[in-house]
Amino acid sequence: MAVERLKVEGQVAEGKVLRFTGGERFSHWLHVVSFFMLLFTGLGVFTAGFHPLMSLVGGLQIARLIHRVVAVIFVLGAGAMFFIGDSRYHRDWLRSAFSFSEADKKHIKAFTAEFFGGHAAYPPQDKYNGGEKINSLLTICGSAVITVSGLVMWFAPNFPAGLVDWAYPLHDLAMFVMTAAVIGHIYLSLIHPGSRASISGMLTGYVPEDFAKAHHAVWYEQAAENKSVAK
């Protein structure tokens, strides 16, 4: 019982607030691992310059095989997140990614300055701030496009040639978008001095209470209001 309660989002313990449940973290890291494996092997197929690197996985044809196998994991993982752990948090995340409030928009406006270490004023944010929502959107849309186009490419003979023609540029486009996004995402979560604290949320599930108050005030307040605070 107690364990169960602890896992509920918004729990605060020893100055930490639970931001991501185990299920959410699992989905995230499955996505991360499969994405990078796909990126790595995909680059090998897509770009001649990466061919030599493929010896790391045992050659190009192995890389192509890995790409296909991991693609299945990538897609199944995305589907599984709605069934594993507390799937409602996944649904909440999805919903939030498609609903932008005034506060989100203002955060996005302030994002550039924040990104380069400056400061711009923006209203208190929810569990996901505007910038994170953009990242989520790019990931969701990118994954969808890359999945569908990949399927068409994999099973090309079953699709009209015109569609197959378009699958390649779309697959490539999605890759570029997601790669660019992931670079920014890594920076913000690991390097950016203002937001790197959030990495602990993905590692342990908990973020520092200060961080939660500062970056996700709306969510923190709501969580504090809704949930019992154990101190």
Binding site: F115, F116, F176, I183, G184, Y187, I191, H192
Partner: peptide, 15 residues
Amino acid sequence: VGGAAAAVVFGILGN
């Protein structure tokens, strides 16, 4: 992608 990488570098520098 290059731009994203460059932005990160500038971000680090800026910070």
